[in-house]
């Protein structure tokens, strides 16, 4: 059974006189528990695809179903709940909430979910340790380096063990050792809990971890290969 089914997705942007094709009739099926990397030059539609699947962006046409549920038909509040409980996001820019410390940023989603404080602390401390930020839990984003902020964002995305992780360039700003560690962690989550990963990346070393690689250009899928 396919976890995510995208059918004929279209999304065009007007930029000045030109029309940018964000998604140009993209159809895609993603199995539950797959570990997929999407690659392509900037502006090829990777981010647009991730946003569309996460319900962050509306489509011009096409359908998206997650576990049989039509994401494109959901209202704002339902989409919010879907993201809250089933999807973890890692954004291109680190996007941390500046007034919250590293640990509070990680706990944010759990807090919205209503997880109890003791449980939150346990989970967040553990995950921060795993991404190598032990001892920096109480720093605000402004006091962390770019790589550290990125790791906080990753920790936030996976801490509540979502069924689907949408990661947009999660390894930008990471050195190769940190990158390998992060990918290993992703893979482990994927294998142990059948978490589906959809990772947009430029990085060939990241691509190497995937079991399916999708290449995009000008809003179209140009290649789709299984490992």
């Amino acid at each position: 059974m396919s976890a995510i089914v995208c059918t004929d997705l279209c999304k065009f942007y007007q930029q000045g006189d030109a029309v940018i094709k964000g998604l140009d009739h993209v159809s895609l099926e993603i199995e539950e528990g797959s570990f997929i990397c999407i690659s392509g030059p900037s502006g090829s539609g990777k981010t647009t695809l991730l946003n569309a699947i996460g319900g962050l962006d509306s489509l011009d046409s096409g359908q998206i179903a997650i576990n049989g549920e039509r994401v494109d038909l959901l209202g704002k509040a339902e989409l919010a709940d879907l993201r809250l409980h089933s999807i973890g996001f890692v954004f291109q820019a680190y996007n941390l909430i500046p007034v919250l410390s590293a640990r509070e940023n990680v706990e944010f989603v759990m807090q919205v979910q209503g997880v109890r404080a003791a449980e939150r602390k346990l989970q967040s401390m553990k995950i921060l340790q795993e991404v190598g930020l032990e001892g920096m839990e109480d720093r605000r984003p402004a006091q962390l380096s770019g790589g550290q902020q990125q790791r906080v964002a990753v920790a936030r995305a996976i801490v509540s063990q979502p069924k689907l992780v949408l990661a947009d360039e999660p390894t930008a700003n990471l050195d190769s050792q940190s990158m390998e560690k992060l990918m290993a962690h992703f893979r482990e989550l994927n294998e142990a809990h059948k978490v589906t990963f959809l990772i947009a990346t430029h990085d060939q070393r990241v691509m190497a971890w995937a079991d399916r690689r999708i290449y995009m250009e000008d809003g179209r899928v140009t290649r789709d290969e299984l490992q």
Partner: peptide, 16 residues
């Protein structure tokens, strides 16, 4: 604005 978008993306409802 960015932060508010982020919180929405992380699953906060508009009402929240």
């Amino acid at each position: 604005v960015r932060e508010i978008g982020l919180m929405r993306a992380l699953g906060m409802r508009p009402s929240a």
